[in-house]
């Protein structure tokens, strides 16, 4: 393809190709400092024109690659960086077979990992980004990779995808040069990507043992609270949060059972970042 870039994120190597220059340039800037893969790539992502004339005329970026969704809607070229990010997510969701893929964020301290999962809007991504600036090592905001052999979590520190309000929150904490361009009017509103800090990138090949699972829930006016979660519910919620659980068969089942039975879990309700951080601090002290 005309333009391309290869990228190592945690244990996974991506090759990205594009018919346009812009998405690749944006990607290179956002992922400045990330290592190049030291061997073959796990996955290939292609950003291509849906039909030949759409390369110039109202360019529409179709997200394709080793794994492709047949009915995926093409995106505006202005959102090309987002298309590249979605392309990488798609390869992981459909093609990752080495790790149990949990739709969850994770951060690490003292060699122990905190896993946070919940529906979109739960704040798991924002919380992991904030913790990553406050003494924790950021491991990932989108996918956590559970090793089916030893039960450890592998980092997958892609750029954090901040949406709407979360952009403002992180802009206050983090200096300017780690942000990508502001992407307005995407299907998910305003999006801005944040490159994880140097420590997160430098230690991207270092797994950690999960010691606490949290199901955060954000709501305006929601009373701060910690609630227990039954193991069966944790199990079901984690299978729902996994894109490859069914495809992995017995090893996935074994790994998930070990995670669920061996790791304390709590649901937390919160209405402000401060409240959430206080709850997390308390629970970490109790369980880690």
């Amino acid at each position: 393809m005309r333009h391309s870039h290869a990228l190592q994120v945690g244990p996974v190597a991506f090759r990205l190709g594009s018919e346009w220059r812009q998405p690749i340039e944006a990607l290179k800037q956002l992922y400045a400092g990330y290592p190049a893969p030291d061997g073959p790539c796990d996955f290939t992502v292609r950003l291509e024109a849906e039909t030949p004339w759409r390369r110039w005329l109202r360019p529409a970026v179709a997200i394709r690659g080793d794994y492709t969704l047949p009915d995926a809607v093409p995106m505006a070229l202005a959102h090309g960086l987002l298309a590249a990010e979605m392309g990488m997510n798609l390869q992981m969701a459909l093609g990752q077979k080495r790790y149990l893929l949990l739709h969850a964020s994770s951060v690490e301290r003292d060699g122990k990992a905190l896993l946070m999962t919940g529906a979109s809007g739960s704040g798991k991504s924002t919380l992991s980004a904030i913790l990553g600036e406050q003494g924790w090592r950021f491991m990932g905001d989108e996918f956590a990779l559970l090793d089916m052999d030893d039960g450890r979590l592998h980092p997958f520190p892609r750029a954090v995808s901040l949406k709407n309000q979360a952009v403002l929150v992180l802009e206050e904490i983090v200096g300017g040069d780690r942000f990508g361009p502001v992407l307005r009017n995407t299907p998910k509103g305003t999006i801005r990507h944040l490159r994880p800090n140097e420590e997160a990138v430098a230690r991207m090949r270092e797994p950690a043992r999960p010691v606490l699972i949290l199901f955060p829930q954000y709501g305006r006016g929601l009373q701060a609270a910690v609630r227990p979660v039954g193991q069966a519910e944790i199990f079901v919620r984690l299978t729902q949060a996994s894109t490859n659980y069914v495809a992995l068969g017995e090893p996935g089942y074994g790994a998930l059972c070990r995670l669920v039975t061996g790791t304390p879990a709590r649901a937390i309700d919160y209405s402000s970042t401060e409240a959430a951080l206080t709850l997390i601090d308390g629970l970490w002290g109790e369980f880690a």
Partner: peptide
Amino acid sequence: VRKVELDGLTALFHVPSGMTHI
């Protein structure tokens, strides 16, 4: 059939189908 107890329920993995049932 593999079985793991989860707080009174059972997560059951059925090897021939590769399916999990709670």
